[in-house]
């Protein structure tokens, strides 16, 4: 064995090929089957897509680095299930490009935060976390409420997501901008289109409480309110999923 190595270490190309070969094995064995074994991701018919507004909110969540302190992955441990809710399923992040499971909880997990607090609570909390939770160390995000959301390119965003496998329809892509506006303006005609395209369970309301203007606060709160609510598969008994 050492004699073989004695010869190998005299050949730069041989050494290069050996390194690539030896290093590739682990990834091939662990990653490739995740795409081929069907049971890796549960089959759930009621899984909904992010609306353009929720997607824009998700992109703000990424932009601000929220994932650095908040996970979105409840582990299969008793205390986590009791603290945060049913443990996370693979299907729940099936349309997450990329996933935001996180690795650190400086703040609590957010996988099931949707619907837990009111929109007003979220707006107040994002504007000044210490007004709502005195001991919080979260940064304040005051500028979100005053920044208009860029929505003219949301169709392109949906299109890019379709290219990586998220089933957005042509209609959804064509109406992305008006759907983003309509979701936060329930009294306008645009609101109906959102429900028609994204389902009855879609939250349609003025998230930041400021009418007429679509802000980044609208988008981020819309996203936070949908977390854990794209499917209710996690709330069903395991047997129902396996059937």
């Amino acid at each position: 064995m050492f004699g073989l190595h004695y010869r190998l270490e005299r050949k730069a190309i041989g050494l290069m090929l050996a390194i690539i070969g030896v290093a590739s094995i682990g990834g091939i064995v662990e990653i490739v089957p995740l795409f081929t074994i069907r049971q890796t991701v549960e089959d759930v018919p009621d899984m909904r897509l992010y609306t353009p507004l929720e997607l824009a909110g998700r992109n703000i969540y990424i932009r601000e680095g929220c994932y650095a302190c908040h996970s979105q992955m409840i582990r299969t441990l008793r205390d986590e299930v009791e603290r945060y809710g049913p443990y996370s399923l693979a299907v729940e992040s099936k349309y997450d490009h990329p996933m935001l499971w996180g690795s650190k909880r400086t703040g609590p997990d957010l996988a099931r935060i949707g619907g837990k607090y009111s929109d007003e609570w979220h707006v107040a909390h994002l504007n000044n976390p210490r007004q709502v939770v005195a001991q919080s160390v979260m940064p304040a995000y005051r500028w979100l409420a005053g920044t208009a959301l860029r929505s003219d390119d949301l169709g392109l965003h949906l299109k890019a997501l379709r290219r990586v496998g998220v089933p957005y329809s042509d209609e959804m892509i064509a109406n992305a901008q008006s759907d983003a506006y309509g979701q936060a303006a329930p009294e306008t005609p645009f609101a109906e289109g959102v429900v028609k395209r994204y389902g009855q369970a879609t939250n349609v309301r003025d998230f930041d409480g400021v009418r007429d203007v679509l802000t980044e606060m609208d988008a981020l709160v819309a996203y936070l309110q949908i977390l854990g609510r794209l499917t209710d598969a996690a709330h069903k008994p395991v047997a129902a999923l396996e059937r």
Binding site: I31, T40, V41, N59, S93, H97, M99, L156, A160
Partner: peptide, 21 residues
């Protein structure tokens, strides 16, 4: 996949559990 050639933003080819791994 970038949103367009004029956008900094892109979407990862992988999602969810495959992306995490």
């Amino acid at each position: 996949v970038p949103v367009s050639l004029g956008h900094a933003k892109s979407y990862s080819s992988f999602s969810g559990v495959q992306d995490a791994m």
